[in-house]
Design a protein around this nucleic acid. Structure first.
Lengths: 217, 217
DNA sequence: AGAAGTATGTTGGTAAACCAACGAAATGAG
DNA sequence: CTCATTTCGTTGGTTTACCAACATACTTCT
């Protein structure tokens, strides 16, 4: 398990946990690594999610299967990404999604029950793990709220301005880490319509931009 | 503190915690009740949120103040509702929102640090409190995801169908706990346009409805 | 530099949402 | 019951997004 530490120590889930505490903590929460071949099912839809998974190598897909049997891929996760935490923490009796290996992959599985049941003694960093978990969940929450704030706007222009407002901290100028296609997907609008709107906003003297460098006027 | 228990025992935050454990747990996490007069500030924007608040009586407003000093009321919470938990858990250094008393009110304040630092002994239900906290956060997460799923649809019709799909479990017929105005607000569309669309969907043979009773065909 | 491929901007026609205004039905108070 | 109020559905004009198709700019590879 020692080699595991090197690969996950920078993960927010393990923030503040030094190597000394790490091994004991892992064993105390019954962490296991598992390998899956491409296509194998890691979590199956309909079951309760009892573990939190962390991708060590390879990649996995989150697949959503709706009532009439159609599947849609909701996300693809690669190394150091986490899955299952929301359903595990929510205590959902029947997960609406499956997780399948998109490649041969290696997963670190942490049993949820054991995570939240702090052991009586010694394992001093267990509490830190729980706090990290809470923090991850809370931050995801904030991100989701931000997205809802954007999507609740009716026009492309308003969505752009709301997005800009959260991107730039206090600065007039800022750059964004998305191309037009990705930005449009984020705002749930048409790429071409968004391009047109950006141009109009520039003509209207609201903003100036060149590629991914934007400036509010 | 004993009378507190009767007032909050049904709160999800305290699920599974019996009266015997309750008092000790409260004292061990340094819970305090505080009263505020209408208009008083409970949490001030710009500060870190160090406590989770639970409204015991009266009501509070969550107020968001943006860069240029304009305030908008984001939510109004009444008895048994929780606030501050997201920012507290996320470790946000500077809260973007203030919480102010909308009425004279009584608040149960739980220090976040103490919540997540399980005490060494005896206080057996402390761990349960943490699990409840995680569960609350995770469930909020699921709700937010559901809302995003709705809002990412482009047309009123698609938003309605997505909403219906989550409302009805497996049933063909179901009722909704909102009037048209509220439903429209939820879906972020115009009430009148939504009414028109509902009628059209009925003409198209997709649904049937009478008041708040809906049926998918 | 030249060619191919990708990303971004532009345009015009169509579909949908917005908005205001109004009428009808349901609800509530006296 | 009657009147006032609220809720809901309808309609027509206006705005905006969608969509497809194309033009231009930028990248990358050789």
């Amino acid at each position: 398990m020692k080699n595991i530490f090197a690969r996950v120590k920078d993960n927010p889930l393990f923030a503040g946990i030094p190597v000394e505490g790490f091994e004991q903590m892992l064993s105390c929460i019954g962490a296991q690594t598992a390998t899956y071949r491409k296509g194998e099912v890691i979590f199956l839809m309909g079951n309760a999610v009892e573990s939190v998974g962390l991708v060590l190598s390879g990649s996995v897909q989150i697949v959503w299967e709706n009532a009439d049997g159609h599947c849609t891929m909701m996300a693809e996760l690669s190394a150091s990404e986490l899955f299952g935490e929301t359903f595990a923490c929510a205590g959902t009796a029947s997960s609406p999604v499956s997780v399948v290996a998109a490649d041969d992959c290696e997963i670190l599985l942490l049993n949820y029950r054991k995570i939240i049941t702090t052991c009586s003694s010694s394992c001093s960093f267990h509490a830190r793990l729980i706090a990290n978990m809470l923090q991850l969940m809370a931050r995801k929450n904030l991100l989701l709220n931000r997205k809802i704030e954007i999507l609740s706007k009716r026009t492309t222009r308003e969505r752009l301005l709301t997005f800009f407002d959260t991107q730039r901290g206090t600065a007039r100028q800022f750059s964004i880490p998305y191309n037009r296609e990705e930005l449009a997907a984020l705002l749930c609008v048409e790429r071409s319509a968004m391009s047109a709107e950006l141009s109009k906003m520039q003509r209207d003297g609201l903003i100036r931009f060149r590629k991914n460098q934007f400036e509010l006027l």
